[in-house]
Amino acid sequence: MRDAVEHGASAGGGIAEQMYQREHGVRPRIASEVVLRERLAQAATAALARAFAADGR
C-alpha cells in the first residue's frame, strides 16, 4: 500500500490528470492563491453587476 501511495497520483498522475494532459497537451497546474483570489473577485463583481442589472436599477 505504501508503494501505491508513493507512486500514485504524484508520480504518474491519476486518470483525471492523464485525461487533461491528453486533451490539452500539457500537465495541469494548480493556480496560485493570488490568481484564485483575483478570479473569485472578478466572478463576484460580474455576478453583482448581473444581479444589479436584472433588478432594473
Rank of each mutant, 00 (worst) to 15 (best):
R22E: 13
H24D: 10
D55N: 13
T45W: 00
E33I: 11
D55E: 12
Q42W: 13
A46M: 02
E17T: 09
E38N: 08
A54D: 04
S10N: 15
E33G: 09
R29C: 04
E6Q: 14
L36F: 07
A44I: 04
A9K: 10
F52V: 05
L40W: 09
R27D: 13
A54Q: 06
A9N: 10
H24C: 12
F52G: 03
E23S: 13
Y20F: 15
E38Y: 05
A49D: 08
A51E: 08
T45H: 09
Q21M: 15
R29K: 12
E23N: 14
H24M: 13
D3A: 14
F52I: 07
A53V: 08
A49I: 09
S32H: 01
S32C: 05
R27G: 11
G13L: 04
A53S: 06
P28N: 01
I15L: 13
S32G: 03
L40R: 06
R29P: 01
H24Q: 14
E23Y: 08
R2H: 12
A54M: 04
G14N: 15
Q18R: 15
A44G: 03
G12K: 15
A49H: 00
A54C: 00
A43Q: 07
A43P: 04
A41R: 05
Q21K: 15
A53G: 01
A53D: 07
G14W: 09
L40G: 02
A51L: 06
M19Y: 08
R50T: 01
M19N: 09
V5W: 06
R39P: 02
R50I: 01
H24T: 15
A49Y: 00
A44K: 10
G56M: 02
G8S: 10
G56P: 01
Y20I: 08
R39V: 01
G25R: 10
E23D: 15
L36E: 04
A11D: 13
Q42F: 13
M1K: 05
A4K: 12
S32I: 00
A16Y: 11
A43D: 00
A53T: 01
E17G: 10
A49R: 12
Y20N: 00
F52Q: 05
R2K: 09
M1A: 03
T45Q: 03
D55G: 03
R57W: 02
L48E: 04
H7I: 07
A11M: 11
R37T: 05
R2Q: 08
A54S: 02
G12P: 06
R57H: 03
A41S: 01
